[in-house]
Design a protein around this nucleic acid. Structure first.
Lengths: 215, 215, 215, 215
DNA sequence: CATGAATGAGTCTTCATTCAT
DNA sequence: GATGAATGAAGACTCATTCAT
């Protein structure tokens, strides 16, 4: 919840200005990275699209990889924020989970290019920055862990303790899968169909026998 | 099943020699790409590790991207071959599925660096090559589709038709997830635990109600 | 008359600086091309002789062929400018022609290495640049067309209309011939002798019969 | 008349075979050089088009420049041979000259690509080979010198002795001009018109006054 | 004599980064 | 703080030539 980001040093002292300029940089870089990938995007292009001179760009970052980090950090924050806005609390853990899955998948769809970007370029980060990005990844997963645990406690979800973490990862990865297997999935399913089927598959595995029987 | 690969032109005529030298090249490149990534590996390094001169390297490929394609193609073939060797047929579709999942996940673990490599560098392929690689990806997935269908037919698996394809993708992606979330998963699960839990989660969603009751 | 040159893009914005640096580049390249030819001159040599880093060189051009174009353009402009300075107007077209031939041939002699350079390397230009260079070549020829026409009108030169263009080309080519057959011509003629004989040969063909008789 | 060519060493001893193979090489190289120029043609291409292996090619030459020399030598011989076949002797020197000019220009037109090739690539020859090629160039010119002298002697041509050599060069160069200014000349003149106008311009300068009067 | 695989020096060009203004 | 000209290390790729078979 407390999202620590690695502070990227800037030569410029005024923090407000740094925020503004980095906003420009991130906006430009996201689009360029999505379009051409990190390696094929040049710092000059980033500067130009940011509306800054190349020299100015380097007043706010120290290396091209800093930009990648800022972008990854921004996308993660953006995803988290969107999840925060949506995530409503149902009565039971199960209800909350159903709507959380729907929310997550919609956010993934909404930000598909960005999510895919992180997926494909993350490995280009220097390892110290990578750690921070992975931590954010874990943080999103842990949200689902918490929901699952609530469901187990209130009896609306049945899941052995050892599988909780795994199920949380599964849910998040199945969300991301919508972006990185989109080339084939979109041929067979709309987003809503995808949500419906996946939710159903996920929940069936966590439904108490007696509840199944009742149906 | 018939895996067509895009033929990469070579200046050398003797096909046997081409096979040998490309073997050297692939072996060298796989290691280098795993270690430093495609972009940070130079053609000279590939040549040196292959035991060839840089000129000789280019007798067997036309561009650096050709090497990436050869590598992806090799890894896919390797994975498929390993699956072929393992994949035993159980009596029921369900039994076959259980062992197929185990086989798949073990192969993924075995070739984890290679699978991860494909995942991270695939996007650097020119689009015509990418098509071939994606086709192989689809081919692996369709193996599981076929198993699922057999299980549905023999009544050992319960799954609505519209979810078959999706479930197949899920299984494959959960296999790959073992490679690309290894940094966190391995903290909590061994491979065998991972297999066990995932198999259990996957199957629970496909178990007929009455069968559940019987237990 | 209005000599349009193809604008070569530069990454550097300041037009004054571009002019200065390109001046350095052209000066260096002319010498190198004269000495070793276009193909055997490397971009690094051009950079070094220009007093620039190789990176800096490419801030002012986009390809090696751009340098060739700049050089050709420069030489043509230089030749034209020298012709402009010299070309005096005699009373009659005939008088003008005589001094124009002398001027042309002297300029050719003066810039022999450069003229020869254009002759030998022009074909290495990409076709769009070639068009511009050929247009300049035509422009120089048309100067002589105009002089010839004046001579025909004032009666000092006799030439059927269909031969005007041809004669203009002849004159220019005979001027260039002094550069590309220099290896043999200079054994038999000095520049002034060459001018004298050629002028005489050229004019005899354009002298009215009665005027000949009068002599 | 005795055309000495520089002997190019060959590893193959049988002179008949050398002649055959070099014939193949020259035929292939001429076409390639015309199409793409000497520098942009690779030895591999020459070998392939010759129907030889690259190794075999080097059994018959010692360097790529040897091929250029063979080609230049071949073209010159070809031009000379064609001139030999055509050059008829008129009664007077003047008549001979008129038909010689026509023959020369027609040969130039016929072999325009080849003539242009020599013109553009000659400079790439090593200086010792260049000497031989220039000697052939001189030899062709001297044919016209001889005709001119005959015309002077039989009184059918009027030309001061100091201009004979020059006039011979002029005629040859005006013939070559048909190839290297073809881009513009062909817009205004057909070959026959070109021949007619040039012959007329050339001869007018060499016509005795009294003869002019007689007409 | 014929072949073609092997070679590596050499080529053009790119691009992240710096620093003087 | 902003700028952009300068830089050169590094990269992908080519090609004339050789030599073992």
């Amino acid at each position: 919840m407390a999202n620590k980001s690695k502070p990227i040093p800037s030569l410029v002292k005024d923090p407000e200005l740094v925020k503004i300029r980095r906003g420009q940089i991130i906006r430009a870089a996201v689009d360029l990275f999505v379009e051409k990938g990190f390696h094929k995007t040049t710092t000059r292009e980033i500067a130009r699209e940011s509306g800054l001179g190349i020299g100015t760009l380097y007043e706010y970052i120290q290396s091209k990889e800093d930009v990648l980090y800022l972008v990854c950090d921004f996308i993660h924050s953006d995803v988290e924020q969107k999840l925060d806005e949506l995530m409503t609390h149902g009565h039971t853990g199960r209800e909350t989970l159903i709507s959380a899955i729907r929310d997550l998948f919609r956010v993934m769809d909404d930000a598909q290019d960005h999510v895919l970007l992180i997926y494909q370029e993350m490995k280009s980060l220097p390892s110290d920055m990578l750690r921070y990005v992975l931590a954010k990844e874990e943080e999103i997963t842990s949200r689902f862990e918490r929901i699952l645990e609530r469901g187990i406690q209130d009896g609306s979800l049945k899941l052995e303790p050892g599988s909780v973490k795994l199920m949380a990862h599964n849910i998040v990865v199945l969300g991301q899968m919508w972006t990185f297997r989109r080339w084939i999935l979109s041929r067979h399913y709309t987003l809503e169909e995808y949500i419906e089927h996946q939710t159903s598959l996920i929940l069936q595995g966590m439904t108490a026998v007696d509840e199944v029987s009742k149906k």
